[in-house]
Design a protein around this nucleic acid. Sequence first.
DNA 1: CATGAATGAGAGTTCATTCAT
DNA 2: TATGAATGAACTCTCATTCAT
Lengths: 206, 206, 206, 206
Amino acid sequence: MPILGRTKKEVVSEFRCLEILEAARGVFARKGFNNATMDDVAEAAGVAKGTLYLYFPSKREIFLETFRQGAVALQEEVRSKMDEEADAAGKILAFVRTRLEYAERNRDFFRIYYTEFNNMLTHPAPVRQEFQDLYDRQANVLAEVLREGMRRKQVRKMDPLAAAGIVYDATRGWIAQRLLGWSQSSVEDDANFVFDVIWRGIACSK
Amino acid sequence: MPILGRTKKEVVSEFRCLEILEAARGVFARKGFNNATMDDVAEAAGVAKGTLYLYFPSKREIFLETFRQGAVALQEEVRSKMDEEADAAGKILAFVRTRLEYAERNRDFFRIYYTEFNNMLTHPAPVRQEFQDLYDRQANVLAEVLREGMRRKQVRKMDPLAAAGIVYDATRGWIAQRLLGWSQSSVEDDANFVFDVIWRGIACSK
Amino acid sequence: MPILGRTKKEVVSEFRCLEILEAARGVFARKGFNNATMDDVAEAAGVAKGTLYLYFPSKREIFLETFRQGAVALQEEVRSKMDEEADAAGKILAFVRTRLEYAERNRDFFRIYYTEFNNMLTHPAPVRQEFQDLYDRQANVLAEVLREGMRRKQVRKMDPLAAAGIVYDATRGWIAQRLLGWSQSSVEDDANFVFDVIWRGIACSK
Amino acid sequence: MPILGRTKKEVVSEFRCLEILEAARGVFARKGFNNATMDDVAEAAGVAKGTLYLYFPSKREIFLETFRQGAVALQEEVRSKMDEEADAAGKILAFVRTRLEYAERNRDFFRIYYTEFNNMLTHPAPVRQEFQDLYDRQANVLAEVLREGMRRKQVRKMDPLAAAGIVYDATRGWIAQRLLGWSQSSVEDDANFVFDVIWRGIACSK
DNA sequence: CATGAATGAGAGTTCATTCAT
DNA sequence: TATGAATGAACTCTCATTCAT
C-alpha cells in the first residue's frame, strides 16, 4: 500500500541502507578502505555479512556511497551558506568556515575524504569521473563567485579557476591540520585566519 | 679489492637496491600500496620475488624506503634552493617553484606521496612519527623564514607555523592539480601564480 | 529450536569440527606435521581450505587438537580399565593391555603420538607444558598404584616414579613395534608378555 | 702425491665433512630437522651455504649422515663393551650402561635420535630400510645374548627378539627421561636400576 | 674449491563474495 | 528478507637449491 509514493518496504530498506552506511563510515575512517573487512562493517552495523550484499553490490560500493553521501551533504551545506552571503568576500569566508565546521562535525567522513580522495582520483578509472565532477562543481561555484568579484573590482584579475583551486587547497589543508590535532584555535578563528590570508592574496589592493 | 672503501660487491648490491626501489616506485604509483603485489614489483624490477627479500625485509619496508628516498631528496633540493635566496619572498618563491619542479620530474613519487601520506599519518602508528618529523622539519624551515620576514617587516605579524601551513598546502594542492593534468601552464607560471597569491596574503601591505 | 540445550547449528558445527580432525589425523599420521599441508587436510576433509580456518585458528592448532583428543581419550580409557582392577598386578596389566588395544584401534593417532611427542617435549615451549602434564598425570597414576603395591608387599621397594617410567616405556616401545608390523602375536599375548617381564622385574620375589 | 692411499685433498675434504656434520648436529638438535635451515647449518659450520652442497647433495642427506654417524658410533661402542663381558647379565648391563653414558656424552645426537627416529621409520620410504637395519642389527646382538643365556639357563625361555625389544625400549625410554632432566641420579645408578628391573624380568627364577 | 646472490615453487593465511537455508 | 558457513583466489614471505664468479 504505497504512501506518498513509497511503500513501507522501501522506507525500511532505505533506513537499513543508512544504518549500514553510518556503520561503514566509522569503520572505514578508523581502518581505511583496505584494512576494513566486510566482517567489521557487518558487526558495526549489527547485521550479518550476507545482508550487506542485499543492499550494496560490493565493498567498494559501500565505501563509495559512504563517501558520496558525505560529499554531497558537504557541498549542499556549503552552497547554501554561500548563497546567504552577498559579495565575494562573504561567500568565500562562508566557503572556508562551513567546510571547517562540517569537518568538525563529520570527522569520520573527512578522515575518509583525505585518505582516499586522491586514491580515487589517481587510480581506478571507473569511479573517477563521478568524484571529479563533484570537485569541478564545487570549484566552479567558487570560480563564479570570483569572476563576479572581478567584475565588481573586488577581486584582482586572474584565472578564476586557478584562484578557486588555491582557496580550495588552503581550506582542505587546514582541515587536515585540525584533524591531526595540530591546531588549538577555534573553528571560527581558524576560518578567519585562512580567509584573511587568501582574501588578501586575491583581493584588489585598494 | 676495495676501492674508495667500497668493494665491488657493495656497489652492485647498492645498485640492485636502487633498481628495486625504482621499479617499486612505479608500481606503487600506478596501483597504490595495497593493490601492488610483490610479484608486480619483482617483475617490474626484473628479478625474482625472493630476491626482493634479500634487499628488503618486507613489502611495507620497500614502500617506506621508496617514500623516504623521494621525501628526503625533495627536502634537500628545496632547502638548497631556498638557501640561495636572500629574503623571505625569494625563499618562499623558491620553495613553491622547487617543489613544483621536483614533482614534475618525479611524478611517481608524488603520486605515492599524495595517495599514501595521509594514510600514514592517520593510520598505522609505527611509521607515523618518522613522516611527521619530515613534515615538521619542512614546516619549521618555512616558519623560520617567515619569522625572519616579520622581523624585517616584510611579512605581516601572524602565527608563523600557521602561515607556513598555508604555503605548504597551497603548493601541495597545486601540484596535485598539475598531476591530474588540470593545469596547462608552465611550472614557472604556476609557481609564480601560487607565490603571488600567497605572498600578497602574508606580506606587509605597504 | 534448541533441543537439549543445543541448536541444530551447534550440532552441525561440532560435527564439522570432528570431520576435520578425523581427516587431519589421517593426514598428519601419513605425512607428519611438517610435510602435511593445509591443502592436504582440506582435501581429506572434503572442504575448502578457507573452511578449515572457520573451525581452527591455525594448522598448528588443528594438529594439537588432533593430538589432545586422542591423548585424552586414551588416558580416560586406561584409567577406567585400571579402576576395574583391585590390585597392582591387575592394574598394571590393564594399563599395558588397554594401551595396546587402543593403539590397535587408533593407529593414526599413535603414529602421530610417536612422531611428534618428543618433538613437542623438546622443542617449542608454548605447548610443552600441556603435554608434559598429560604424561605426568598418567605417570602419577601408575606411581600411585606401585606405591600402594609396595605398601601391600606386592611390589619391591623402589622409586615408584622410576618404576612407572619403565612400565610406560616398555609399553610405549612395544606399541611402536606393533605399529611397524614387527609383531605377529595377538594384542592379548603381547600385553601378557610385556606385563610378565615387567611384573617379574618389579614384584616382590616370594 | 698419495700417502697411505689418500691424497692430501681427500684428507682435507673429509675433515671439512666432519666439521659440517658436527655443526649440523648441533643445529638439528636445537631446532629439529624442519626448522633448521641451511643458512643455520652453514653459519654454524663457518662456511658458505653453497659449500655445503659440495660435500652433501641435500639437506636431508646432511641430516641423515649426522644421524648415521652417531648411530654407528653408538653401536660400535655398545658392541665393544658387551664383548668385554662374559655372560648375559654382564652383557645386558653393559648394553644399558653404555647407551646411557653415550647419551650423556652425545646429547645433541640423542635429541635428534628421539625427535626424528620414528619420523624416519614411519614416513619416507627411501631411507627407512637403512635405519631399520641399524635397529635390527642391535636387536639381533641382544637377542643372541639372550639366546645364549637361555641355553645356559640364566634367562627364562621366551622369544629372544621380543625380550630384546623390551631391553631396548626400557633403555631408550630412560635416556629420554634423563635428556628431559627428569632424573637426578648418576648414570651408573640409573643404569643399574634399569638393568635390575629388566634382568629380574627375564632371568630364570632360581 | 668456495662463495653467496639469485631463484621460484610452495607454504599458511585472509577475506570479498556466494548461496542454501 | 536475512543469515553466516563455505568458498578459493590471491596474498606475503620462506628456503632448499643452483651457478656465475
